[in-house]
Write a protein that binds this DNA or RNA. Structure first.
Lengths: 153, 153
DNA sequence: TTAAGTGCAAAAGCTTTGCGGGTAG
DNA sequence: CTACCCGCAAAGCTTTTGCACTTAA
């Protein structure tokens, strides 16, 4: 979960970038961004919709989809890599890593200085330009392992 | 792309595991597995369906979905982490990494001994059990960069 | 022989599109 | 003012479910 300070920095960054691009900083855009920033999981469009709708009852689903893509384009949120079916958004734009549960598709943020120091190998020979990286540690989360244990016994 | 030898090893592995589990090794299951193994991208269920249907015209979509999940459960293919909407399957079950294009969502296999040697940090304190890992190098692929260059000029 | 697996039809879930009206700048 | 953005309705993909029939073992 982002700190309050980090959240308000990001809101300011958004307002600045939005104006620089000559685009409109609407109530919907601000609330949807706040909606993503106030979560520590990696919400789907639908989860953001349900959360933001509480304070903005007329909000429509297409606005959520359009806005989330817009916020990614502006660079104030990112898309998370996931194994499931619905697109998932990530409030973080800095270097961090994920624990990926292969049973329930849960994504958990994971911080590790050792992983951050990874040297990015050369990818020019395949014509790819690397801007960033993520390490995904795959396995099973606490909840899924506990569920499995119950079933066995 | 897997070599012919690797493909036939995987088919044998599947037949063995399938029988050990007391389940049936049907034509559909074998063809769908072959369908995934003969690609070097990370196909969606629909792409597998279109490819396999050429040799098995009565194949139905629900069979493809059920079978792909089954093949993952048996352990002869894996799910790939992706940023898009449709689930993507990976013919590889060994340690390897991905180049992720943030523009077109393309996933490209990437081999690097340095990345393979990464030491997996401790995750017990968050209750997570790691079985495997992947490094994702994020950026833009050759095709997307060429397209961008065309638009600019 | 017979239970597991398949195809079909239909529903459910996720995402996009087109358009008329509303609003930030 | 007015171009950009929103809400609505509808359509377009992706995935799952229930059931009767088929087939691997």
């Amino acid at each position: 979960m982002l700190t309050d300070a980090a959240r308000s920095d990001r809101m300011e960054l958004f307002e600045r970038l939005c104006h620089e691009r000559g685009e409109r900083c609407t109530v919907q855009r601000r609330r949807i961004l706040e909606g993503v920033l106030s979560r520590d999981d990696h919400p789907t469009a639908d989860q953001v919709f349900e959360a933001v709708r509480k304070r903005l009852p007329d909000l429509a689903m297409p606005t959520v989809y359009r806005t989330l893509e817009y916020l990614v384009r502006v660079g104030v949120i990112t898309k998370a890599c996931h194994t499931g079916r619905a697109t998932r958004y990530d409030p973080r734009i800095d270097l961090h890593h994920h624990l990926v549960c292969l049973q329930c598709s849960r994504l958990i943020d994971f911080e590790d200085a050792g992983l951050d120091r990874l040297t990015i190998p050369e990818t020019a020979h395949v014509g790819f330009e690397v801007t960033d990286f993520r390490v995904q540690l795959r396995g099973s989360c606490r909840t899924c392992r506990e569920d499995e244990r119950k079933e066995t016994s």
